[in-house]
Design a protein around this nucleic acid. Structure first.
Lengths: 95, 95
DNA sequence: TAAATAGTTCAAATATTTTTGAACTATTTA
DNA sequence: TAAATAGTTCAAAAATATTTGAACTATTTA
């Protein structure tokens, strides 16, 4: 279930998460995908180090923009579409 | 006329502009206003220095989130609602 | 014309974000 | 069990963003 009633702090966390070229690339990449993909695969597609990937995925997750699903030693990641949908339709209410 | 076809760089500029507590306060303040107000008045309402105001208004304007209208020595500012409307309805296309 | 007001610009100081590489944990494969 | 793989954590370095105050321009008011 998607979170309702965001605070301004939540909003800022979301905007900060979106306000970086690597993270926006990740978002765009995940958007045109319709399955889960591992952090490693995505990191390779973005051509970033695994440390950098780890950092950026954490920020995206903490903003609620992706969901993460660990299987054994791999972490699979996909867009949290309900967050985007909710946020885009309740933008002014949530600021 | 509102800009169509944003690049990823434009998007990042917009997200960065929104990703700051003072600027988000300004946006919220302007949103519940329906007339133009001067930078000075807004700055006072936000309790920030005029230098800081000048800096933040510039970032908001360069992101296309506000429009500015100079009368004599004062600058009047209001939300650029078409930008918000367009962006919120074309979010995925514009990333 | 002098003083006051609205806002800008600049450079320095401060704060925050991002990158980097090495060392680490947990899991899988040989 | 040893080696390899996926990802995390940490602290230092580098890059960016924000704040500050002083000096500035342009306009208005006394």
């Amino acid at each position: 279930m998607t979170k309702q009633n965001y605070t301004s702090e939540d909003s800022i966390k979301i905007f900060k998460a979106l306000a970086d070229p690597i993270r926006l690339e990740i978002i765009k990449y995940l958007n045109q995908l319709n399955h889960e993909e591992s952090c490693g695969e995505i990191g390779q597609a973005m051509d970033i180090s695994k440390t950098s990937g780890s950092y950026h995925f954490k920020i995206l997750q903490e903003a609620g923009l992706i969901t993460v699903h660990k299987i054994a030693r791999e972490k699979y990641v996909k867009l949290d579409r309900p967050t985007f949908d909710y946020y885009l339709t309740h933008f002014w209410q949530n600021l």
